[in-house]
Design a protein around this nucleic acid. Structure first.
Length: 423
RNA sequence: GGAGAAAUGGCAGAGUGGUCGAAUGCGGUAGUCUUGAAAACUAUUGUACCGUGAGGUACCGGGGGUUCGAAUCCCUCUUUCUCCGCCA
């Protein structure tokens, strides 16, 4: 959520910047400013009138004490009139406040200056690439075949138990996942992130805080009986750990990490590109989150990008880093780098991580603040990134490391898996 | 799930329906004293909205109500604690 003051003072700039996202509904900005103007004048009226009522009430109190019943009754009659109009003003103000918020919530974040215009992922800009694309033997197959061949995972079983898109892992497939999770968590901890195990179901306030509500309601599983949402990423509960907090400057940056199952409805995405592990409803991910001083958030972003990059290097996977264009940028993000890994049998780049700076967009919703040198509260910046999401990493590992004799496990993982080969 | 008790500022803990945004203690900050520290003393110490400012307004778990006036009375929801039941 953008800061109201900022919108008020930078309306034209905002409209221009939102065009980079192809955001159509720019009239909201003008509406917002108008509704806010009304809200402020209404508050002024309300405050003045309440102030009047309060004064009268305390005068009445004095008169009663002095036993001046009649004079008190005169004033009483006066306040009764005021009361009615107070109620109306109060009601109007409430409506206007809601109206401001309803509009504010519809505005996406302002893209960073480095974000290029564009419509889709085809306009994303490659900023870096690394690793070697492997040459596969002639009988090489995609991961879904490999998983079946070596009995690592079953989609049929998942369908029987839950439905399409809920994979069941077993044997070395399950072990490999556990190894990856442990490896990623160890790396994050080494990098200074504190590990959390958060709830996997969250309430509406929490889902609103990170921006899943109202924008992406349809993407989350909703447990209607208790009105809870299953988390699409650990970012949601972990960032909300700090909701309403006023941090000390010396405690910044706050660095948190968590492994969790992630649940996504993925409504409307079907087809050849979602085969196997490319897109599933439940998957595991290790997330890193930072809450920083506003002047330090881009430093933190670079640090997080470097962290994710080092993971891919450790896993010896060919990768490229993409700066998302305006059209592909998430609703809440100012600047996002996507990491893609080359999955050699599918001959496709798969997105395995997304690292974003939200600046104050989330922290404004969650009121995550710090106290500055003048002891004034200021909003912090928040960032997060996947480090990493497992299914596609698994897909690429299996495909890229397959040999006629079996699948080789990268060195960095061997102490976690306890085996060097699946075969 | 059943019965009871409670919810006040960073924490602890007062609070009679009428200057209560709220006593007091601890903690925090600044200062005095000290070579330094501790102790002691003094002052200060919530958040947000509106206003150029003076200042105004809201907030004592959430929502609603009674009243000229509510932290204080009523209704309701939520949470926590204790006891019972169930259970990994």
């Amino acid at each position: 959520m953008l800061q109201l003051n900022f919108v008020r003072e930078n309306a034209e700039h905002i409209k221009k910047k939102l065009a980079i996202r192809n955001f159509q509904n720019v009239d909201i900005v003008d509406e917002l400013i108008e509704v806010d103007r009304l809200r402020r004048t209404t508050q002024q009226k309300r405050d003045a009138q309440l102030s009047e009522s309060k004064k009268l009430a305390s005068q009445i109190g004095q008169l009663f004490k002095q036993g001046k019943q009649k004079e008190a009754d005169v004033l009483k009659a006066k306040t009764t009139e005021l009361k009615e109009s107070n109620k109306t003003l109060e009601h109007q103000l409430k409506l206007l406040e809601e109206s401001v918020k309803d509009r504010l919530v519809l505005l996406p974040n302002i893209p960073h200056d480095s974000v290029a215009p564009g419509n889709s992922d085809e306009d994303n800009v490659e900023v870096k690439a690394g690793g070697k694309i492997p040459k596969l033997h002639k009988d090489a197959t995609p991961h879904w075949d490999l998983m079946e061949k070596y009995q690592l995972m079953s989609l049929e079983l998942g369908t029987k138990i839950a439905g399409a898109g809920f994979p069941v892992f077993m044997g070395k497939g399950a072990r490999l996942q556990r190894a990856l999770v442990a490896f990623f968590l160890d790396k994050a901890t080494e990098a200074g992130y504190t590990e959390y195990i958060p709830p996997l179901l969250v309430n509406e306030t929490t889902a609103f805080g990170t921006g899943q509500l109202p924008d992406k309601e349809g993407q989350m599983y909703h447990v209607t009986g208790d009105n809870l949402f299953m988390i699409p990423t650990a970012e949601v509960p972990v960032t909300n750990v700090l909701r309403e907090a006023i941090l000390r400057q010396e405690d910044l940056p706050v660095k948190m990490t968590a492994h969790s199952q992630c649940f996504r409805r993925e409504a409307g995405s079907y087809g050849a590109h979602v085969r196997g592990l490319n897109r599933v409803h439940q998957f595991e991910k290790v997330e890193i989150v930072q809450v920083t001083h506003p002047t330090k958030s881009y430093e933190a972003l670079d640090e997080m990008v470097a962290h994710v990059e080092s993971l891919l290097q450790d896993l010896e996977l060919p990768y490229r880093i993409m700066r998302l264009c305006g059209g592909d940028l998430g609703f809440t993000s100012v600047l996002t780098y996507d990491f893609e890994v080359y999955s050699a049998a599918q001959k496709r780049w798969l997105e395995v991580s997304s690292v974003s700076n939200f600046e104050t967009f989330q922290t404004n919703r969650m009121k995550i603040r710090y106290r500055d040198d003048n002891k004034k509260t200021q909003l912090t910046h928040s960032l997060n990134g996947s480090a990493l999401a497992l299914p596609r990493i698994l897909a690429a590992l299996l495909e890229n490391n397959q040999t006629p004799k079996g699948i080789k496990i990268p060195k960095a993982l061997q102490s976690y898996t306890g085996f060097e080969m699946i075969g």
